[in-house]
């Protein structure tokens, strides 16, 4: 039998719904972007042609990343984190994966392509994916708080058990 969740209609609930929608949209975007690239690589009809930048610097970065094979990693990670976000599994980890990808997308969109006029455009995922990643990471802040441990001591091999334990935990 499925667990019952008690809620009431208030600001906190509304914010949670908005954040959940943000998680689902970011996940959907990542999944689509990664899948489109791999469809091309597999010789299948793609979802959209891979952008290769509007300015020389942006083009250099994107073409080089594709030619040296770095996009294979990036696009695979996009699919992995997209699935994590959509299916609500390992979400804090999914956001850690999404953050550097989103940051580079933002840098490419704004700095390299010079689209400063679209810095806060709500319909432009070139910037919104980065902002969504930040906001969602703040929503899951308690999972990242231990990273700020001031003086951290090394652990041992036994800590691998902690990973397995965490993977089975609902929090």
């Amino acid at each position: 039998m499925s667990k019952e969740i008690t809620y009431s209609w208030n600001l906190a609930t509304a914010v949670k719904i908005l954040l959940t929608l943000g998680r689902l949209y970011l996940g959907g975007w990542m999944l689509t972007s990664g899948t489109s690239y791999w469809l091309t690589q597999a010789g299948l009809p793609t979802i959209f042609p891979q952008p290769v930048g509007n300015t020389p610097l942006s083009s250099q970065m994107l073409v080089t990343m594709i030619e040296v094979g770095l996009f294979d990693i990036v696009k695979t990670l996009e699919i992995v984190c997209g699935l994590m976000l959509i299916f609500n599994r390992f979400v804090p980890l999914g956001l850690v994966i999404a953050m550097p990808i989103s940051a580079v997308v933002w840098y490419n969109a704004i700095v390299l392509n010079g689209r400063y006029d679209r810095l806060f455009s709500p319909t432009y995922m070139g910037v919104m994916c980065f902002y969504l990643s930040i906001v969602l990471m703040l929503a899951y802040l308690r999972f990242y708080a231990p990273l700020l441990t001031w003086k951290a001591k090394m652990g041992g091999l036994g800590d691998v058990k902690e990973l397995i334990k965490a993977a089975k935990t609902e929090a």
């Binding site: 499925s2 667990k3 019952e4 969740i5 008690t6 959940t20 689902l24 996940g27 609500n88």
Partner: peptide, 20 residues
């Protein structure tokens, strides 16, 4: 609307997948 209400976790999860 106010007051506590209940919903099953499974229903919420399925709804989230439909939205996705």
């Amino acid at each position: 609307m106010s007051g506590s209400q209940r919903i099953s976790e499974r229903t919420l999860y399925i709804a989230s997948l439909v939205i996705a």
